[in-house]
Measured scan of single mutants.
Amino acid sequence: VFVDDHLLEKVLELNAKGEKRLIKTWSRRSTIVPEMVGHTIAVYNGKQHVPVYITENMVGHKLGEFAP
């Protein structure tokens, strides 16, 4: 499973602090992992960042699938 390192670091850091804030990313190719559930990730679609709230059903899919 591929997840960009910088994105995973941000998610794990927020989980350690117990925070839930918006994470901006250009990494549409990253796979959604269970650690991301409950976070809102702003995924770049080529024009703007689209906020995507991550749920359990999204695990295993790519971030780009949810930012048309």
Rank of each mutant, 00 (worst) to 15 (best):
K62Q: 10
K47G: 07
K62S: 10
G64H: 08
K10F: 09
A16G: 08
P34K: 14
L8V: 04
V33K: 04
E9W: 11
R29A: 13
H49Q: 04
A67G: 08
E65I: 09
P51D: 07
H49K: 03
A42F: 04
E19R: 07
A16C: 11
R21Y: 10
P68D: 08
E9L: 14
F66M: 08
K24M: 13
P68C: 13
K24I: 12
L14P: 01
V33P: 03
T55N: 10
M36Y: 07
V59G: 04
T31E: 08
E13N: 09
T55P: 01
R28M: 04
L22W: 10
T40R: 09
Y53L: 13
N57I: 09
H39Q: 02
G38Q: 08
P68T: 12
A67W: 03
E56D: 12
W26N: 14
V59H: 03
D4W: 02
E56M: 14
K20V: 07
W26V: 05
N45W: 10
R21A: 14
E13T: 08
F2H: 10
V59T: 12
Y44Q: 03
R28C: 10
I54P: 02
N57M: 13
Y44P: 04
K17S: 11
R28D: 03
L7A: 01
W26T: 06
L8N: 02
V59F: 14
I23C: 03
V11N: 01
L7T: 01
I41E: 00
G60L: 12
V33Y: 04
V11F: 03
A67E: 04
K10R: 12
V43R: 00
E35N: 06
V37K: 12
T31A: 12
H39P: 00
I32M: 04
G64L: 08
I23E: 01
T31W: 10
D4Q: 03
E13H: 08
L7V: 03
P34L: 11
G64C: 13
T55V: 12
K24L: 13
L12Y: 06
V43L: 07
V33I: 15
P34Q: 12
D4Y: 02
E13K: 09
V11S: 01
G38S: 11
T40I: 09
H61Q: 12
G18S: 07
N15A: 04
L14A: 09
V1E: 15
V52W: 03
V50H: 11
A67S: 14
V59E: 07
F66N: 03
W26G: 07
L63M: 06
T40C: 14
V59C: 14
Y44F: 12
F2D: 07
N45Q: 08
L8T: 02
K17E: 06
D4V: 01
H39A: 02
T25K: 01
N15P: 01
F66C: 06
P68H: 08
G38P: 00
H61I: 10
A42R: 03
L12G: 04
